[in-house]
Simulated assay, not measured.
Amino acid sequence: MSKIVGAYPPTLVGDSWDPPDGATWWRFRLQPNEDGHVYVQEVDAEQTWMSWEFFDGESTVIDCGLDRPAALVRLGGFDHGNHGHLDILHAGPPTPSPQWRPLTGPGELRHPEDRNCGCLCGKCLCGGHCHEIGRCYTRA
């Protein structure tokens, strides 16, 4: 079971975050464990950080905001009875599991399912919500 750790409550990516060189969007299809759980989420008692564990047969910790963030995470695909998927912008597969599949090429920072937010930079990480948050979230 690998673990994603980050600040709680989760925050938007700020323009000070610089994705690792060669970052690629990777997808992992979530699968339930023997108890039927797809993931396990925990928030610390002080409510300053959270962890999100998923069942990939590995034991990797992915930092999404506690120290120096190494990844950007998105969840999706929980409709129509699916168990969902986990997408991570990361340099190389996020864990050693062979189940990770690349969604983009190295350095392509926009998620393939994002609508065009209107930014001309081509590197916006806002998920198509620049107009809602009032600024473009790009690589420096």
Rank of each mutant, 00 (worst) to 15 (best):
I133F: 06
C117F: 07
C117P: 10
P112A: 10
H80A: 05
R27W: 00
P93V: 09
E113Q: 15
P112N: 13
D21M: 07
W52G: 03
T95Y: 03
A71D: 01
A71S: 04
L89T: 00
Q99P: 08
P10A: 15
G22A: 03
R74W: 00
G77W: 00
L66V: 15
G127T: 07
D114H: 14
C136A: 15
A23Q: 01
P10Q: 13
D63A: 14
Q41L: 12
P93D: 04
M1W: 05
R74T: 03
W17Q: 02
D79Y: 02
V43A: 03
C117N: 10
S97H: 11
W25D: 01
P94W: 15
P20E: 04
H85D: 07
H83T: 10
G81S: 01
C121W: 05
T138I: 12
S97M: 10
P94V: 09
I88E: 00
A91V: 11
L66M: 13
Q31N: 05
D18K: 10
G14K: 14
W52N: 09
P69D: 01
F55T: 13
I4K: 14
P98K: 14
P10F: 13
T104K: 03
I88T: 02
C117E: 09
D114R: 09
R68T: 15
I62S: 03
H131K: 12
R29A: 13
F54M: 11
G81E: 01
R29V: 12
